[in-house]
Amino acid sequence: MTDPRAARGAADRPGRGGELSRRDLFRLGLTAGGASLAAACGWDGGPHLGPTLHAVSLANDWVGEKLLVSSSRLAPVYPVSRRTPAGLFPAYSISHPLPVVADPAAWAFEVKGLVERPQRLTLAMLQALPRVTYTVKHHCVEGWTAIATWTGVPVASVIALARPTAAARYLRFDSFDHGYFNGWDLKSAMHPQTILAYAWNDRPITPAHGAPLRLYSPIKLGYKLTKFLTAMTFTAERPLGYWEGQGYPWLGGV
């Protein structure tokens, strides 16, 4: 997961400091209502076209979810030798410093909402469930890629435990990172490569990558992969998401 909006989490973004402050200034200018040439070119559609762009984005989400996502088609996997050197795999969080669990023994992952059997799963319980390990490419919405090995329990296995009701159509993943959350379609969540990951490159996942548990899937952009997980909730209504609510495409599928 990375920061799709460069203005936030700036401290994690190596070598881009100058650009960030310029963007911040630019956005400030927009907020202040400056009608400069720069503002005109930074046009996001305005009050008239903006909703249209959003509607098209939702239509694209529909195409992506209903027509493109296949529950059986797997994203390509790579040999371990092609991993990105660990220090070069970017990571970020909304809150600073990195959010960490004060008492790991007290941490547990809740499965709730429209389910027959709500769950409260400790890390040991999660690790006892079916395990998936793969080395895949991470696609950031910014355009960069990196390869790493992830290990965890398929979300489909947890879903099977909880037994969602017929009304459940979406999933909401919550974190302890300053309220960061994501909304997911069930089809992507049921994908065999969508996992709750507790290991990264064969070791327990580090705080930078979302310890103790994070959502991972090679069929979604990084900003859909909630780190620092606390709960997943089945809903009937589509949950938005931290970046999705600010204008990023909701589906974020690759």
């Binding site: 070119c41 996001d44 762009l53 204008g247 990023y248």
Partner: peptide
């Protein structure tokens, strides 16, 4: 800026 459209990444994507 004059060559870009959208204002920020999400705007450009949309």
């Amino acid at each position: 800026l004059w060559a870009r459209l959208g204002g920020w990444l999400a705007g450009g994507l949309n």
